[in-house]
Design a protein around this nucleic acid. Sequence first.
DNA 1: AAGATGGGACAGCCATATTGACGTATCTTG
DNA 2: CAAGATACGTCAATATGGCTGTCCCATCTT
Lengths: 169, 169
Amino acid sequence: MAVPSSVSVPPTASPLFLREHEVRRGVELLFFGYTRLTRAIDDGLAEHGLGRAHHRALYFIARQPDLPISALLKILAITKQSLGRVLNDLADKGLVETRTGTIDRRQKLLHLTPEGVKFEAQLFEALRSGLASAYAAAGQESVTGFWRVLEGLIPAEDKAMVIALQKDI
Amino acid sequence: MAVPSSVSVPPTASPLFLREHEVRRGVELLFFGYTRLTRAIDDGLAEHGLGRAHHRALYFIARQPDLPISALLKILAITKQSLGRVLNDLADKGLVETRTGTIDRRQKLLHLTPEGVKFEAQLFEALRSGLASAYAAAGQESVTGFWRVLEGLIPAEDKAMVIALQKDI
DNA sequence: AAGATGGGACAGCCATATTGACGTATCTTG
DNA sequence: CAAGATACGTCAATATGGCTGTCCCATCTT
C-alpha cells in the first residue's frame, strides 16, 4: 500500500508506525459500521421473538436454498449444537424446512418456507436501506474499494466459500 | 450510485432490484470481514481469561485516555451494568485504572496501566497485521472507498463521536 | 463388513447482554 | 440554599448465544 506522501514524520519512522492511524480508523469504522447496520434489524427480529443468530441462519439459507447443514456450519463457524438450537427455533416458527438430499440421503437440505421468504425479505429491506444509502453517498468507486478491502480480510481458506455465495445470483 | 452498465436486466427493472446483488455482497463481506478480523485476537484474550467485550473497552480506553465512563457507554452502546462488570474485570487484572475528574468530580476518567498499554498494543498488533495486509492488497484508493462507505453506515447522531475518536491522533 | 460422514440430542457450562430498582456523591439551577 | 439532575455503583433476576463432552442413528464409501 502506498503511504501518503504528505505524512510529516522523520524519514526513519517505520512503516508500521505510519500505518497505525489508518489501521485504527479501519478498526473503528468496521466496528461502528457493522454494529450499527445489524442493529437495524433487531426490532423486526424481536417482533418474532428471534435474535441475530436466527437472522444469520435465515439470511444464508435465503441466499443458497437447499444448503446442507454442514455448509451452513462452515459459513457461520459455530458448533453443531448452537446451530441446532437456532434451526429448531426457525422450524418451530414455520420459517425454515428441510428435505432429504437426493445425491446423499444423509444430508438435510435447508430452505425457507413462503413465510420465511417473506420475513427474510422484510429484514433484508432494513439492511438494503442502510447499505444502499451508504453506497449512494460514497459513490460506485468507493463501493468497489470497500469490497476489495473486505475481501482482503477474509482468510484464504474461507474465500472460496464467500465467492461461492456470490457467484450464482 | 451508478449501476454497472453490464448488468443484463430488462430496462424496466426497478433500481431496488438492480441493487440487491450489491447489497447482499456488502452484507456478506461485512459479516465475514468483521468476524474474521476480530477472531484474530481471541487467542490473546483467552490467555488472560478475557473476552471480546473486554477488548472493546480496552481498545477505546487506549484510544482516548481519561475517557469518562459515560463516554465509553455511548461508544459501546451497552448498559451501565454490562460495562461495569467488564471494567471491574479489567481493573482486577491491573489493566485499567480510574482517576477522579478535575472539572467534574463525579466523573471517573479511565486510563490504561502500563501493563494495560502493553497488552492492548499486543492485541492491536494482530488487528494491524490483518488490516494492513488487506489495505496493501487493495491499494490506497480502495482504502479510501472502504472508509467512505463505512462512514455512511454510521447514523448521524453517532458520527460526531467517531470523528472525535480520530481527530486527535 | 468396517469405518467415515451427516445429522440429532442430552447435559452442563460460560460470556455477555438485558431490565428494574436503589444508593451516593456531586453539579446545576431556580 | 434547596431541589433536581447527573455520574457512577451495585444487587438481583433473566435471556441469548456461544461452548464442551458424550452418545446415537442413518447413510455413504471402501
